[in-house]
Design a protein around this nucleic acid. Structure first.
Lengths: 347, 347
DNA sequence: ATAGCATTTGACAACGTTGTCATTGTATCA
DNA sequence: TGATACAATGACAACGTTGTCAAATGCTAT
């Protein structure tokens, strides 16, 4: 390939117009498929477009257009590489692509400052709307953007924003069901391991845990509660500590997918995986290939994402009905680990 | 909150200027931290910015700016929800965020048509560059964009593009090592299960398989080769078929992470997981919690992503050295499944 | 006091596109 | 034939910003 092929700048409509021997506006009309261009000129323009490999500059177009739509949305996740987040992402992308919309994805790492940076970077690029798994309970920036009229949909977690659209699962009911299920298998000493307590989901699941214990008539023992566990390593460590304590739990409720994995690691390492019951919140790949197979409170991340995206696009298409708080159910999947009886026997 | 708070349009520099009682250009100078604005005016402008919650419109800015940079890059993945892809994504995002750059992520689903759509959508939004896991061997659109002077970095897979930057792992060596390792444990009937044969990685890993067999002096038996296996279900099915055939393999080399999982499912379902050896290409979460623990040829997706992103940003910062083809090593992690001897005994 | 200079400020054009409106050409009608 | 309607086309301004350049200001040196 010779250097002659190397063009330094992208061609513009003006150049297409010059080549086709028509006015700028006629090219614009052809590109936007507006009516009222003779087939002869249209043909000439299309040839010129092909010849120059012209591609419209949508940023210039967005600037001028009346509707101010950029066909771009922002997605704020905890971490794009978290399996749960990435399933959400995919579902949202699929809906977006049906609306010919591109998705900016960003990882806040549950850091409110980074979240704010991302919101600013996205709104500066004039995204049409935002879907967010909020890092903090109160995001000033999101709040403000929403007030500016930019559609914002919260997914998975709630933030304390006045009347916002949201799609979440019933975390409390899920947590309650997990504890109730363990209690029904005879467990009285059920430990709770949860994510950073400031996260809405972690807090709700903890409330579910408390509720479940109450329902089962079990007194809450604070020594069995471990909050602010945030990754596999700390989860493993926390479980090892619990197992080493004198008042050891007979069952674990791990309230997040990475915590569940850390707990399994700890159980396997100590050879206790068949003695201690375990229910995790959130399903994960391979859960049914482990030994014992892992019982979980499953959510449907794809459905969460799809619902959130559909809600956002409805807003973008002019739906001005009051904000919706959609709550999806969870489902207990009993695979074995949650059905271990006290003392380590399977039913 | 009253409706008075609802503003319909974003404030512009002009409005900030009016409020601060200065010219448009002075506001621009303050926003861009150009030298030569008196502290008094600067102060007044900053107050106005705060008061109006002004945020610069980067799309307008990009249009006018000389460098034509949008601080946006495009990332084309197979599937954002694939664990390997999402780890790549995260690593790239981390590098991008250091360059104050946002990432458009898209899933091609290994469909060249969808890939082309995404490339067009991204370049229409004038991304500064592209990082891509190419869906097809020859992407006309990517080829063209590259010729236009838009930096393109290929990652994980190669495409037949003249002299492009790329970051891949040594798939052939990895495949060869897997087969050699299995042969060293006495296996003669080693099956190959690979992704769509048109994918560069799948083809390379197959070549590694062939090479490994040759090295071990084993004749290739086409009945042990299953190509175009693309997801968990088809992989499980393919392994079930292999296990049911008269000339059953004693070891499996599964050349992609989802195929590995499907194979494990099939082995567990038939209770053969301790008789048939298995090495998978690509490590995955929980591989060392399964029974048997799964031996793999591991790549480092984060390092792949980081390297690719650093290469892209070097190009964007004006590095005009000849295209680089960076090849990273793989690593065999022996955990158990790959060390099962013929007949099902562990060494 | 005046020339000379540096500093601060703003007027204006331009980026690539679309919205508005005027102009041209052609066909239709009384 | 002339008036009218309609379709096709283009000239021009505008979107929100930055680059260029000129003007205004304040200072120093003569």
């Amino acid at each position: 390939m010779s250097n002659a092929n190397l063009i330094s700048r992208e061609p513009t409509m003006r150049e297409v117009a010059a080549l086709a021997g028509v006015s700028l506006k006629t090219v614009s009309r052809v590109i936007n498929q507006e009516a009222g261009v003779s087939s002869e000129l249209s043909e000439r323009v299309q040839n010129a477009v092909r010849q120059l490999h012209y591609q419209p500059n949508t940023t210039a177009s967005n600037l001028r257009r009346a509707d101010q739509r950029t066909a771009t949305i922002g997605l704020l996740l905890d971490d794009v590489s978290n399996p749960f987040s990435s399933l959400l992402h995919r579902a949202i992308e699929d809906v977006a692509s049906q609306h010919r919309t591109l998705v900016f994805a960003g990882s806040s790492g549950d850091d409110p400052k980074r979240e704010q940076e991302l919101v600013l970077a996205m709104t500066a690029r004039r995204v049409d709307g935002l879907i967010t798994v909020p890092a903090s309970r109160a995001s000033g920036e999101l709040n403000h953007r929403q007030r500016l009229g930019k559609p914002v949909v919260f997914v998975d977690r709630l933030a304390t924003i006045h009347a916002a659209d949201s799609v979440t699962v019933d975390n409390r009911a899920g947590g309650c069901a997990a504890v109730w299920h363990l209690a029904a298998h005879g467990h009285q000493r059920i430990a709770f391991l949860g994510d950073i307590h400031d996260l809405w989901t972690a807090a709700e699941r903890y409330l579910g845990y408390v509720e479940g214990l109450a329902l089962a008539g079990i007194r809450l023992d604070p020594s069995l509660v471990r909050q602010d566990v945030h990754n596999i390593e700390t989860a493993e460590q926390a479980v090892l500590e619990l197992l080493a304590s004198e008042q050891m739990p007979s069952a674990l409720f791990t309230a997040q997918n990475l915590i569940t994995i850390g707990a399994i690691q700890a159980l396997q390492r100590t050879g206790r995986q068949h003695q201690i019951a375990l229910i995790g919140f959130d399903d994960f790949l391979l859960a049914d290939l482990l030994d014992p197979r892992v019982s979980v409170i499953a959510q449907d991340p794809a459905r969460l994402g799809r619902t959130a995206a559909e809600l956002l696009f409805a807003r973008l298409d002019g739906d001005h009905t009051p904000p919706q708080q959609i709550v999806l159910p969870t489902r207990l999947i009993a695979r074995g680990s949650g059905e271990i009886l006290v003392g380590g026997k399977l039913r």
